[in-house]
Design a protein around this nucleic acid. Structure first.
Lengths: 192, 192
DNA sequence: GTCTATAGTCTGATAGAC
DNA sequence: GTCTATCAGACTATAGAC
């Protein structure tokens, strides 16, 4: 794999440092509550230096969301290939929990920040992926109770990683416990 | 009860209309994504007319949160008076679900909007109430699994009401189903 | 890649007439 | 209670020197 690196995970570049700073500020103050000046100040540079890396503020948000959206698409498509309802639910549940844990902050941002739907009105639609995840968990003709359980699960999975009390919990532990709790919430038996 | 009305529920006043407009905009665009001009436009008046009702933008948000914060305090204080752990959990769970359903939009705002913690740094602290709710649900020396279940429950309860798929569900139905789901999530037996 | 400087717009908030 | 008019400051974004 060469210099074309995906997302922000590869190496310490000016771009990746900028994305990390932006994510921290977006998480705390929201996208609309964060100015380019704040991002520049945190990096110790000027606004113009920020604009050298990204052509607009939207582009920064898009770059932050892209790895998560990409992974979401993969999870959804894999789950939709399963042939039994049970296997679909199992696949999407483990997949989404894995996402939510690996991309803790970005998940909460995508779920809760009003700037995200405003942005994706024109871009690769995260809302459509969330919708497909919901459908996979709901199945056909869901009862009201199921509808409500799935709605609760959606918020819980995407927002929980942001909880400061869980900051010290390691990924594997968090993933395992969230899966157990999610199964209880949906009324699934634990896997033997 | 005379003209001194609490919150926004009492009657159709200019003030209550303004709060309703602000809540709708805050829910969709976030507090920081909503300008006073947008609120004024929605009411068909000018910004100056808005400033006649509220001395600042913060004051509008504070007025929106006040009824929820007040009800939260009542729920927490009542639950803390219970003498057994089981009764405490039962009390806080039913109380919070009732809140979250009655104040659907405001609950999501309080839980997720970055403007709320920024505001309550100086005002009657909703964060402290959320903390006490968490403590009541956790109990002393919680295991990691319990910690994570309660974190998930917190997000789920406060955010679920905002879900557009549940907009048509009536309060009583939503309350009942959320209680059942919350009990499953926490591993409590359903009440006979 | 980073800077200074600035354009043009919108922001929250105020003053004062009606 | 609502208006017009205005303020000072912050905002995103651009231009061009180094």
């Amino acid at each position: 794999m060469d210099a074309a690196m995906r997302g922000d995970a590869r190496k310490e570049t000016p771009r990746s440092r900028l994305l990390a700073a932006a994510l921290a500020l977006y998480s705390r103050h929201g996208v609309n509550g964060t100015s380019l000046q704040m991002i520049a100040d945190r990096l110790g540079v000027t606004k113009a230096a920020v604009y050298h890396q990204f052509r607009s503020k939207d582009a920064i948000l898009l770059a932050l969301l892209e790895p998560l959206v990409s992974d979401m698409r993969e999870v959804v498509e894999r789950a939709e290939c399963e042939r039994t309802r049970t296997a679909q639910v199992e696949s999407v549940l483990t997949g989404v929990i894995d996402l939510a844990v690996r991309h803790r902050e970005v998940s909460a941002l995508m779920q809760a920040d009003p700037a995200v739907p405003a942005l994706h009105a024109s871009q690769s639609d995260s809302a459509a992926l969330s919708e497909r995840i919901g459908q996979l968990l709901l199945g056909p003709d869901p009862e009201p109770g199921r509808l409500i359980s799935v709605a609760m699960l959606g918020s819980a999975l995407m927002m929980t990683g942001k909880n400061p009390k869980l900051a010290a919990v390691e990924d594997e532990e968090l993933r395992r416990q969230m899966l157990v709790a999610a199964r209880r919430l949906l009324g699934l038996r634990s896997r033997g």
